[in-house]
Amino acid sequence: MEKKLSEMEFDEEGTVKEIKENLRKQVAGMGIREGKEIRMATKQPIKGPVVVEVDKSFTSLGLGVAEKIVVEVG
């Protein structure tokens, strides 16, 4: 099933399926690229940022960024 990264539940895992073109370069340096396995580590309340785990390291993303990333989940 596909969903936006911003819609993932806490501790849910998935594979990055699609990143909006204009965002691709921005997140690539943080280790988020298509095909990468990703896990939702923390969700902050009130439209706060999300923290995701990629390759054993954590990255925080603004909700607006997380909405533009599509993840395939189990």
């Binding site: 690539a28 340096g29 943080m30 280790g31 990629v54 054993k56 390291s57």
Partner: peptide, 12 residues
């Protein structure tokens, strides 16, 4: 690079 996050750093 941060050796514990090496893949990320290699991009740069």
């Amino acid at each position: 690079l941060d050796a514990s996050k090496v893949e990320r750093g290699l991009y740069l």
